[in-house]
Amino acid sequence: MTVPSALIWDPAVARYQFRPDHPFNPRRLELSVSLMESLGLINDTTARVVAPRMATEAELLAVHSREYVDAVRRFSAGGGTDDAPRYGLGTDDTPVFPGMHEVTSLVAGATLRAAELVMSGEVKRAFSICGGLHHAHRGRGSGFCVYSDLAAAIAWVRREHGGRVLYLDYDAHHGDGVQGIFYDDPEVMTLSLHESGRYLFPGTGFVDELGEGEGYGYSLNVPLEPFTEDDSWLAIHAKLLPEVMEAFRPDVILVQNGCDGHALDPLTHLRASTRLYEETIRLVCELADTHCNGRVIATGGGGYAVWEVVPRAWTLIWGGLSGQPVPDRIPHDWLNRWQGEAPVLLPERVRDDPAAHKPVPRREEIEATNRRTLESLRRQALPLIRGWDLGW
């Protein structure tokens, strides 16, 4: 059944481009939205497009320091950049570019707009496809991220509605920026499932990162082994998410849907298929319907197999959010539109063929390690959360 949903989108957000050869390529946004349109998943009523707005200075300052915002504005306008590395900018990962303050404020405003629509009850679920910038910290950028749209939206929900927020992040990279900004806040639960920081940027996100002060026990991390694949990843979701929802009782779920854990992604090693993204968003929506009146604020995130993976994964996520079945055959008009520009042969189906996804060696060992990691987290963190009952 179709669920009242909003896709937050405007081509202007594609100006968030560091340089033509940078892996954080905004073309993936246009590819994804055009595939949704081609499959008939966008309409003018229940599954509609809503334009973003600019984040205000006050909304940025709720989660970023004045010094940092002023520095970003100065670099954006062409001011001197000698001190940019002090703010995590001007690096190969996160270069300075003209107009960066304005477009990153628009990206932050897209996720804020999604939060407004969901919390007002105008829609149950909203997808800020350009958002998900989870590495930005209070006083510095990092890992392709300048402003934290995620933290800005969480802070807005807390300030305007007093809502408890469950932040779920299953990007292949640890959601370190969001975790850090709310590390001492017991009204914001951050839960990140990611490739272990032993092998992947940003090198954080271990089980013992539990929060501090009043927020101790409200930061949860599941560092996954490389080559985890779908089954182990989904088993952890299915075990942990219902427990967290029951204990924490959030008023809304904010989910970061980075799709860089896919087997074709060039930057990571988790080897998921499109099944992970379709089944995870289904579980999130089911739990939201049970525990928080269906409220889900969703964003994009990482994803560097720009042509082969991102459009399909995010189309499946949009289908799950909006309650629409996603056809498996990709329309010829979409393939004809993009194949001439694509550097790879575009897939003809939305979902990966399970038969083409051969299991890696050591699968049992990897799954056993992931189970031990999950149980270590449950033993350390979950008794600290109000209302948690391990059932032991």
Rank of each mutant, 00 (worst) to 15 (best):
R349E: 12
I317C: 04
A247V: 02
A238C: 04
Y304A: 04
V118M: 07
G79Q: 05
V255P: 00
V255K: 02
L166M: 15
V123D: 04
G180N: 14
I129M: 14
A355T: 11
R158M: 03
F144E: 10
F182K: 03
G211Q: 10
P359F: 02
R140E: 14
E367V: 00
V344W: 13
E195L: 02
W233T: 13
L346E: 12
C130M: 11
E278R: 15
G300V: 06
H194R: 10
A272E: 12
L112Y: 01
D10P: 07
G205K: 03
S148E: 09
I317T: 13
W338K: 04
L60N: 00
P26Y: 06
Y216R: 14
V222F: 12
R363S: 13
R378F: 00
A136H: 02
L61Y: 04
G141Q: 10
H134T: 05
H291L: 07
A6D: 13
P52F: 11
A356G: 15
E364L: 11
L321I: 12
V306P: 00
P4S: 13
C292S: 09
V107K: 10
R249T: 03
Y216W: 12
V63P: 00
G387Q: 07
V63K: 01
D171E: 10
L31N: 00
H269L: 12
V350N: 07
F144R: 04
V103C: 05
A108P: 00
G340P: 14
G217L: 08
D389K: 15
V69D: 09
F248A: 05
R27Y: 07
V222K: 10
E209R: 10
I385P: 03
L41F: 08
L390F: 07
S322E: 03
L193H: 00
A235M: 12
D251A: 08
L60C: 08
H22R: 13
H137K: 14
M100C: 05
D176V: 04
Q339M: 08
D251I: 08
V3K: 13
G217T: 07
A356L: 12
L234Y: 03
D208L: 09
G121A: 06
W392M: 12
I253W: 06
R249F: 04
A342Q: 06
T274E: 10
S142I: 07
R275A: 14
Y68K: 01
W318P: 00
Q324G: 02
G177S: 09
L335V: 10
G131A: 07
N336W: 08
A247Q: 13
E246S: 15
Y216E: 14
P311R: 12
G40E: 02
A110Y: 02
R329K: 13
D208P: 00
A115C: 13
T111A: 06
V344R: 10
V63H: 01
A305T: 03
G205R: 06
G213T: 13
M100W: 05
Y147K: 09
L254A: 12
E67H: 10
T190E: 02
K124D: 14
